[in-house]
Write a protein that binds this DNA or RNA. Sequence first.
DNA 1: CGGCTGCTTGATTACGCTCAAGATTAGTGG
DNA 2: CCACTAATCTTGAGCGTAATCAAGCAGCCG
Lengths: 277, 277
Amino acid sequence: MSSLGYLGYAAAIAPPQATGTERMPSSNIVDLHGLKQACSACSLHDLCIPMGITNEELESLEKIINRRRPLHRGDYLYRPGDRMEALYAVRSGSVKTSALSDDGQEQVTGFHLPGELLGLDAISEGIHPCAARALETTSVCEIPFDRLEELAGRVPGLQRQLFRIMSREIQTDEHLMTLLAKKSSDARLAAFLLSLSSRFGERGFSRQEFNLTMSRNDIANYLGLAVETVSRLFTRFQESGLLSVDRKLVEILDMDRMHQVAGAQTVDEPHSDKHRG
Amino acid sequence: MSSLGYLGYAAAIAPPQATGTERMPSSNIVDLHGLKQACSACSLHDLCIPMGITNEELESLEKIINRRRPLHRGDYLYRPGDRMEALYAVRSGSVKTSALSDDGQEQVTGFHLPGELLGLDAISEGIHPCAARALETTSVCEIPFDRLEELAGRVPGLQRQLFRIMSREIQTDEHLMTLLAKKSSDARLAAFLLSLSSRFGERGFSRQEFNLTMSRNDIANYLGLAVETVSRLFTRFQESGLLSVDRKLVEILDMDRMHQVAGAQTVDEPHSDKHRG
DNA sequence: CGGCTGCTTGATTACGCTCAAGATTAGTGG
DNA sequence: CCACTAATCTTGAGCGTAATCAAGCAGCCG
């Protein structure tokens, strides 16, 4: 929530805004693939690991980070059971992580946008419990964990930032638990869209209009709903003027009401009639 | 799952086993209140922070850890909005953590047994997003975070263990997300009981029989169910011979079937008739 | 262009919630 | 120590939300 500020770069090249409805490669991408860009020049600077460490310290960090060639849609970054060698920071594109429950069915545990770190849940066992798949063309920074750990021991600011990132992840997960345990289907979808909205915003993209890079199925899975329900909700939201949706492109038309819906409980609310088809 | 081993101490004094049905102060307690016991002698040694660090390093850790006088049932360890000064390790007793959702209703985010760390979600903001309340008479170790952080920079094993603990927390949360998103009410309760069972087991208590220190309400809240549902489930589980329950005391009678139930999906299962009324 | 996968829409079912009342237990003070 | 009250838990009846089942529709691939 805090660190807006110097997203100037991303903001300058990024916002696709109303680029038209015809298909485009998939918009919310800061395409840095070709650039040989160091952390210090990266637009994700203050969302990612570098945040809050000095320039000299940053140089040490840059030395251990590798770039990986871009992943294509559906490519795995890692699979459950893989040895964890490195953490990954999304540089552009988006990634979905999902776990397999005891009985072997998929549970989507998160969607990850540029600047977000992947693989934190693998540190404890040294084995990835989740799969990570690219939702679109995606590039990532690979950060060998042993070297990161070693560096964190020498650079207090880095250690602190890693603790912070992991802590934030725990907080996010707790928030999602609340969503799943207590909220109605409309509240879940609304909260999900608002989360995307604000995360896109932090990255310099439009908070109103953005592309969903994940399928309805993934959304439903993530939110603990059936695909049909998600589909119906989009229709209802659109009918009630909350948003407009065309395939993957979503525009939030009434932010205030969206927040109301996201806060709304299963049923009983003191004073507020929930929209209903 | 890993580290059984030298739980000898806890095991020796702990297991209440079938102590009789009449009320007792609340059993799953290793009462160390009065003892001036250092980490090195603590029975929770290899579940808690000390795990995997050398004896000399342990001494440095012990120096920064404070004991707090025992909390009583209902006492707050911290409240949402409190500044985070320290992490806490449960030494004996049990603690419930809960968050307030946007609309101000409680969501129980976890129950914490001896050896478990509290407050990890507060690191990122420096403010506790959750409340922590004792479920029974409980004592905790207080670990000032700034000093812990500083020490972790000097003691690689400690840093690593902290990363591991936070990572494990993330994994646990993901597991709970799956539970909430995908599982039926029976599966949720079964999984919850099995989680308690195995955690009690790790601490040297009986895996079959234990006391629930939390109310039905807390369980329901945690699992995203209504109290009435939880109550009915206990009744059904008992009727079907899965467990026997008397007020707070639970005995799991059929572990195998409990695992089956915990793994079971909302509905469709290939070959296994779910017990029903 | 055909087959496919992903999305939408409709009809029906059912799981778990709500409401309501009663039964136990725990907590409190005389 | 017992009486009284408040809180927690259990049980029942009815209902509502979202799942399931079942087609149809649209975009996307080779």
